[in-house]
Amino acid sequence: MALATYIVGQTPFPEFSVVLMLDDVQIGYYDSTTWKGVYRLHSASKYYDEEQSDVGVIFLDMYNGMKNRAVYLKDHLNHTDGVHVHQRLAGCELLNDDKPGPLYFWDAFNGQNMEEFTFDKEKNDIQMKKPWMIKWDQAKKIHVKLLYENVYHPICIKTLQRYLNMQKNYVMRKVKPRVRLMRKMLSDSQGLQISCLATGFYPRHINLTLFRDGQPVDEDLITGGEILPNGDGTYQMRKSLVISEEELHEEHKYNCTMKHLSLDNKLDITFVDESDSGSFSLSIVFGVLVCVAFLIITALIIWRKRGAAGQGSETSQCIYSPTPSSVQG
């Protein structure tokens, strides 16, 4: 995928820039300051001349097209002078059998989706949605189809295959998620929050669902759900649900299920009810009593030592650590 940005107006950024991605790995960068591609992989150096040639064809054509469209849209939408941003997400894919898939384009102007474009080489067909309020004549359609069929699509697939070969061990790896179930009592008698956290997984796509009594919880009641990056190249997702004080007195079964490419079957984890307030209070009282007894005994020992030696000092500290039965999640 290539994320291209064209800026209308004066900013400290390049007028035109492109970030090149293989799945979620950045492999290259290009902008209008140098008009050259910069690649992050050392093994790409032997393809440098070929890469620069491909970049010169694709990105320069993309620059001219996006510039013309941005100027047109600025006037057509009656925007005043200032900074305006035209962005394009474009790319291709390899299917499961390594067969070349379609070529895709998504365009936006000032954050507003303006056009979707798909070229399917196998069907020799172009599909468009909201084509910039400009009607293409038959000659224009033929020209665009030939351009994408003979230039854009082949170069995109060739680049994808090349970098996939370089990074296959990384982008094709499968790392199983680690799962944590958490419970948090809310203040002011607002109830209990339960959370299901899956972390450390790759690839980034995961299906995590919270259930109550065997039925999926309404998404409107759930917070979180965004896929976030970890610092080690893996990802995490957390979903949380607040259970009201009234619901705590009802008998409900909550569980969390997830599906991921690294798992042979879906993973199902049930929230065990550990909200026995009697045992929790008892464990706290027991812990406090032990702490007080320890302080009294320590004080007596220090007093006797001082009485015998007449000098010296000693301090002690008691830190309460909940017993296993007092841990709430």
Rank of each mutant, 00 (worst) to 15 (best):
D220P: 04
L295M: 13
V292C: 08
E93R: 14
I284T: 09
L60W: 12
L3W: 01
P229Q: 04
Q328F: 10
L89N: 03
K239N: 06
V290P: 00
E115H: 13
K123D: 10
E247A: 15
E219D: 15
L261W: 02
N96C: 08
A44E: 09
C318F: 08
S32F: 07
L103A: 12
R88W: 02
L300Q: 09
I7S: 04
L295G: 11
T34P: 05
E246M: 11
D137L: 09
K145G: 05
L60K: 15
I296D: 05
P177S: 01
I58S: 05
Q87F: 00
I58K: 05
E50V: 08
K266H: 12
Q112M: 13
K266Q: 15
V175Y: 03
P322T: 06
V272W: 04
E50R: 09
N124Y: 10
A293Y: 09
Q167G: 03
C256H: 03
C196I: 03
E219Q: 15
F117Y: 14
Q317I: 10
P322N: 08
F201C: 00
D107T: 05
Q161S: 15
D97T: 10
N265V: 08
F105N: 07
Y254V: 03
I27H: 06
V18M: 03
G310H: 12
S325H: 08
Y320D: 02
G224D: 04
W132C: 00
M128V: 14
E314T: 08
Q26Y: 07
M66C: 07
K176M: 06
G91K: 01
S316L: 05
G312K: 02
D268R: 13
R69V: 06
H84L: 02
V25F: 09
F13W: 13
K184C: 05
F280Q: 13
M133K: 11
G224Y: 04
I301E: 09
K36A: 11
L248I: 05
P14W: 06
D23S: 12
H76C: 04
S316K: 07
F16N: 03
P324D: 10
A139N: 13
G287Q: 03
L3P: 01
H42G: 11
P203W: 01
F294Q: 11
S313H: 08
T323W: 07
M258Y: 03
G82P: 03
D61S: 15
N165L: 12
D218E: 15
Q311H: 13
Y47C: 02
